[in-house]
C-alpha cells in the first residue's frame, strides 16, 4: 500500500495537518476484505475439526484489524488514539481470559 499521499495533504485543505487516506487504500482494503469473506465461507465447507473455528476466527481477526487500521485510520492516528484502541482491546482480552480461566478450572480435580 506504500504511502499514498502521505503527508502530502498538510495543506490549507480541511482540518490543518490532517492526514487524508487515499481512496486507493480503501479500494485495496475492501477487495482484501471481500476475498477474505469468500475464503472463510469456502473453508467452512471443508471439515478441519477444531481448526474450522481457528481458521474462521483468525480470518475474522485479520479482517477486523484491517478495518481498524485503514478504514478507521488508526494506522495514521496520533499515539493517543493508538494507545486508546490497544488498551481497550487488551482490557477486553484480559476480561475474557480471566472469565475463561474461572470456567475451565471449576471442574479441576473432579475427574
Amino acid at each position: 500500500m506504500s504511502e499514498p499521499q502521505a503527508h502530502a495533504n498538510a495543506s490549507p485543505h480541511g482540518e490543518d495537518q490532517h492526514h487524508i487516506v487515499s481512496w486507493r487504500v480503501y479500494l485495496v482494503i475492501v477487495l482484501i476484505l471481500l476475498a477474505a469473506t469468500g475464503t472463510t465461507a469456502a473453508v467452512s465447507y471443508i471439515d478441519l475439526g477444531v481448526f474450522n473455528a481457528v481458521v474462521a476466527l483468525a480470518i475474522g481477526v485479520t479482517k477486523a484489524t484491517l478495518v481498524v487500521l485503514f478504514f478507521m485510520h488508526v494506522k495514521y492516528s496520533t499515539r493517543l488514539t493508538k494507545l486508546t484502541v490497544f488498551s481497550g482491546i487488551f482490557t477486553f482480552l484480559v476480561l475474557i481470559a480471566m472469565t475463561l480461566a474461572d470456567y475451565i478450572t471449576r471442574a479441576w480435580g473432579s475427574w
Binding site: 469473506t37 472463510t40 467452512s44 474450522n52 474462521a56 476466527l57 480470518i59 475474522g60 479482517k63
Partner: peptide, 12 residues
Amino acid sequence: IFLYPLLYLISR
C-alpha cells in the same frame, strides 16, 4: 465480522 463466523461458520 465476528458474529458471522461464530453464528454461521464454526459449527457446520
